[in-house]
Lab assay of single mutants.
Amino acid sequence: MDVFMKGLSKAKEGVVAAAEKTKQGVAEAAGKTKEGVLYVGSKTKEGVVHGVATVAEKTKEQVTNVGGAVVTGVTAVAQKTVEGAGSIAAATGFVKKDQLGKNEEGAPQEGILEDMPVDPDNEAYEMPSEEGYQDYEPEA
């Protein structure tokens, strides 16, 4: 019985440690998101679009440190934060509304985080759909 109880105690310690790591990862992701939003706020009209992409990228980098179902929630929060940063930029006159959601080359930025393969159960990952990809044929 002692062996059984000791095993359960060790398992509990492992769960607590994993929860603490997840909590730490979420806190880091939130900190990076805040950094990115402050970065966007300090940019001029020309830099705002690039700044919004930076927020998304920093958040995406930190999301990889967070495991399990938390990833889905962090990704949703990050996307809403990026959308909010863009709205703030438009409201303050840093950028025109028609410039939001495009990178410096004018290509749409939507789907940055949505296409990231995420499995809350950590069982399997699927690649994003290939609808947006084109076949590449090298020139002879």
Rank of each mutant, 00 (worst) to 15 (best):
K60R: 10
A89K: 02
N65G: 09
K23C: 06
F4Q: 00
V15K: 00
P108R: 11
T92G: 07
A19F: 15
V26K: 00
A56M: 15
K6V: 02
E130W: 09
I88T: 03
L8C: 01
P128N: 07
G14Y: 11
L38F: 08
E130C: 10
V48R: 01
V55T: 02
A85L: 15
K23F: 14
Q109F: 12
G132C: 12
A124D: 14
D119M: 10
A17P: 00
E104D: 14
L100P: 08
E28M: 07
A85C: 13
A124P: 06
E35F: 12
K96V: 14
A89Y: 12
G36H: 15
A124H: 07
V55G: 01
K60Q: 06
D119S: 04
V26W: 13
A91D: 03
L8K: 00
T22I: 15
E130Y: 09
V66C: 04
M5C: 01
A78I: 12
K23V: 05
A17I: 05
T54I: 14
V71K: 09
E110F: 12
V63K: 01
V55M: 09
A91Y: 14
I88E: 02
P108A: 05
A90T: 06
M127R: 05
F4R: 00
G93V: 07
T54Y: 07
N65T: 08
G7C: 15
S42K: 13
Q109L: 05
P117Y: 05
E139H: 08
K96G: 10
A78P: 02
V3M: 06
N103L: 06
E131L: 04
T22A: 13
Y39L: 08
K32N: 02
G67Y: 04
N122V: 08
A11Y: 03
Q134T: 03
V52Y: 15
A27F: 12
E61Q: 10
G14S: 09
S129W: 05
G36Y: 07
Y39N: 03
G106I: 12
G101Y: 12
E130G: 09
T81R: 03
T22H: 02
Q134K: 13
A107I: 03
M5E: 01
V55D: 00
Y133L: 15
V74Y: 12
K21L: 11
V118E: 12
V95D: 07
V49R: 10
G36S: 11
K97P: 10
E114F: 14
K97F: 14
K97N: 07
N122F: 02
T81F: 13
A89M: 07
A90K: 05
I112D: 05
I112C: 06
E46Q: 06
K58Y: 06
G93F: 02
P117W: 10
E46V: 07
D135M: 09
V15S: 00
V55L: 15
A85R: 03
Q79N: 10
L8T: 00
A27I: 15
K34N: 01
E114G: 15
G47L: 12
G73M: 14
L100A: 14
A90H: 12
T59Q: 01
D119A: 12
K43P: 00
E130D: 07
T92Y: 07
V15M: 14
A56K: 14
E28F: 09
V40N: 00
V40A: 05
K97D: 15
G51Q: 09
V15Y: 15
A27L: 13
A91H: 13
G68Y: 11
N122R: 12
K12C: 13
D98T: 12
V55F: 12
Q62L: 08
K80C: 04
V55Q: 01
T54A: 11
L100M: 05
Q99V: 13
T92P: 04
K21A: 12
K34H: 04
G47D: 08
M1F: 00
G7S: 15
G25Q: 15
E137R: 08
V40F: 07
N122C: 04
N65Q: 08
Q79L: 11
V37S: 01
E20C: 08
N65F: 09
N103D: 13
V48K: 01
P138S: 08
A78S: 05
I88N: 02
G36A: 10
V77Y: 06
A85F: 12
T44W: 15
L100I: 05
A140I: 05
N103E: 07
K10A: 07
H50G: 08
K12N: 01
V77I: 14
K80Y: 08
L113T: 08
E126K: 06
V82Y: 10
G47Q: 14
G36Q: 13
T33L: 09
K21Y: 11
D2H: 06
M127V: 10
G132F: 10
V3N: 03
N103H: 08
K43E: 01
V3R: 15
V63S: 02
T33I: 03
G93P: 04
V3S: 03
Q62D: 02
V63W: 15
G14T: 15
A11Q: 00
L8G: 00
E35L: 13
E57P: 02
V55I: 07
A11C: 15
E139N: 13
V37H: 00
T75E: 03
A17C: 06
L113I: 09
K23I: 02
G31L: 12
G86Y: 13
F94S: 09
K34G: 02
N65Y: 09
K32C: 02
Q79F: 05
Y136Q: 08
K10G: 01
P108N: 10
A30T: 06
I88V: 04
T22F: 07
M127Q: 10
Q99E: 07
G67K: 05
Y125I: 14
G68F: 01
E131R: 06
Q134M: 12
A17Q: 11
A69H: 08
V70H: 01
V95N: 09
A27N: 07
A53F: 13
G31Y: 11
A27P: 00
A11F: 12
D2E: 01
E123Q: 11
D135H: 07
K96N: 14
A17S: 05
T72W: 06
K10M: 14
F94H: 04
V52N: 01
M127P: 04
A19K: 03
D2I: 02
D2F: 15
Q62I: 07
E105L: 14
G25S: 12
Y39H: 06
G93I: 08
K80G: 04
G7K: 08
P138D: 06
A53V: 13
T75W: 14
T22D: 00
G93M: 03
